[in-house]
Design a protein around this nucleic acid. Structure first.
Lengths: 186, 186
DNA sequence: ACTCGGTGAGAACGGTCGTTCTCCGACTGG
DNA sequence: CCAGTCGGAGAACGACCGTTCTCACCGAGT
């Protein structure tokens, strides 16, 4: 197993464990056990747990953004592309291991203690907001709608996690559709 | 200091510390230091840290619900009562020590590890949802609007915490107003 | 005055965590 | 075949946590 493979296994294992049980609840030994990478190698690749946490979040940021882009760009009309965001959320929330948004959870757990984590989370949400703004602009809707859609998406994530149901994605989608229509004539 | 006073000081101290820095990051010694209540007394009143955490969340649940009720019932018309929820959020988000919703944060930190915490958070959000449903019914709006308002409120809380600005409350309020109007004719 | 239940301050205990170190076996180049 | 480097397994370390214990002290009842 070369360094690249070890890094991938570490990031995979840490991402799964952090998401399932939270960051502080996972010890480095659990990551070693799931990844099969020794502690020595782990600390060569990531000099501290915080470095590993940040790398996990950065990789997930790229993955989530790519997934959202794939979902939205697969739709034909600008309106459908906006609403596709909430279809993406519904599919995600329906997965049995869904436990909320990893960025929101990480911010809740460490945002007060780690400025780096807080900044990564902020940048991720800003990137999603930028994507939404582009979709809104392409649909010729007023710019403030993008901020409202971001609130709806974040709200759907936390509400679905807490109530344990994917339905909030439908609620958010219905609200988004009404806002999309209201804005066109209002 | 009698038992009642000690309990209040403990709950005050724990609530502040948990909210500021997260639950797992706070040791019982920090709570003793801020509250001035000895460890022995603390463990007489709350047999474990988890008991204390649950008591803190339950007390905050009652306080938040009372505050929302006070805010909404102070308005004259049913429509204004619905929108008052988002004015409440704006005032809350504007406080300098705002760090998101304690229930959402606790769920993110412990929802996977503590079924009791998860249930208290779920019950709190359900109570807020019930309150919103009553406001929506009083305004003669269709019931599904309540679920959309809950998503907007939860989304405003996490978005405001992450971006460090109270503006998401305004975004959510504008969306709520449009939904309130759209639903009346749709 | 003298017990005595209960208190506070803080040490102690067992466990876990992040991180480092030790030791040993395995591979490499000659 | 061998010296030397590397990596793995896991012990070790120091710190901290939740919880309990020790012990000296205080106030109430007799």
């Amino acid at each position: 197993m070369d360094h690249t493979a070890a890094e991938v296994r570490l990031l995979d294992a840490a991402d799964e464990l952090f998401y399932e049980r939270g960051i502080q609840a996972i010890g480095m030994d659990a990551i070693r056990q799931r990844s099969g990478v020794s502690l020595k190698r782990t600390y060569q690749l990531f000099p501290s747990k915080e470095h590993l946490v940040e790398a996990v979040l950065r990789r997930r940021d790229a993955a989530v953004r790519a997934e959202i882009s794939a979902y939205t760009s697969a739709r034909a009309t600008p309106n459908e592309r906006v609403l596709a965001v909430f279809d993406y959320l519904y599919d995600w929330f329906s997965q049995p291991d869904f436990r909320g948004c990893a960025f929101i959870n990480s911010f809740a757990e460490l945002g007060g203690a780690s400025a780096n984590v807080a900044e990564i989370v902020r940048a991720h949400k800003q990137a999603v907001a930028d994507h939404l703004a582009a979709l809104v602009a392409a649909a010729d809707r007023p710019a403030p709608l993008a901020a409202q859609l971001l609130v709806l998406a974040n709200g759907a994530m936390v509400t679905a996690a807490i109530v344990g149901s994917p339905e909030p994605a439908r609620d958010a989608r219905a609200a988004a559709q009404l806002l999309l229509e209201a804005k066109v004539t209002g």
